[in-house]
Simulated scan of single mutants.
Amino acid sequence: MKQCTHADALPAPEPAPLSDTCPECQAAGSHPVQLRLCLSCGYVGCCDTSPGRHSTEHYKESGHPIMRTFEPGENWRWCFVDHVLV
């Protein structure tokens, strides 16, 4: 089973969210399907089911490896580099 090699480098505590919604979706007048929180910098972006896929774009631009769900009642994390749940 593949494991994430980036989780040990995450800041503790988690960074504070920079927004409560995806700013790119908000600026475009669209609505995100679900939100993700970057665990390196606090960026909040929309999921890959949303038209903008801004969380993935943030990873591609920043290289920040792990995002977690920003949805109430959920607590999973995803490593973009290793393609695994953390």
Rank of each mutant, 00 (worst) to 15 (best):
H58Y: 07
E24Q: 13
G52Q: 07
L85M: 15
Y59S: 00
C79I: 03
D20Q: 12
K2H: 10
W76Q: 10
H31C: 15
W78Q: 00
D20Y: 13
H83K: 15
P32A: 07
Y59V: 02
E14V: 13
G45M: 01
L10Y: 03
V86F: 09
I66Y: 00
C79S: 02
R53W: 10
V84T: 03
T49W: 15
N75Y: 11
S40E: 07
P32Y: 01
W76V: 12
P11S: 06
D82E: 09
A7Y: 05
R53M: 14
P23G: 05
F70D: 01
P15A: 06
N75E: 12
A16F: 14
C46N: 01
P17I: 03
E14R: 10
K2C: 10
C46Q: 01
K2F: 08
H54C: 12
W78E: 00
M67I: 14
A7P: 05
R36Y: 12
G63S: 06
P32L: 04
P72A: 11
H6P: 02
R68Q: 13
C38F: 04
H6I: 05
F80E: 02
A12L: 14
S55Y: 05
P13Y: 05
S62H: 13
H83D: 12
W78S: 00
V44D: 00
R53Y: 06
S62L: 08
Q3K: 08
P11V: 04
W76T: 09
L37G: 01
D8N: 14
S30Y: 09
S30K: 13
H64S: 02
E14P: 06
V33N: 04
C41K: 09
P13L: 06
G45K: 02
D8H: 14
R53D: 07
R36K: 11
C4M: 03
T56G: 10
H83E: 15
T5R: 11
G63V: 02
Q26G: 10
E71V: 10
D48R: 11
R68I: 04
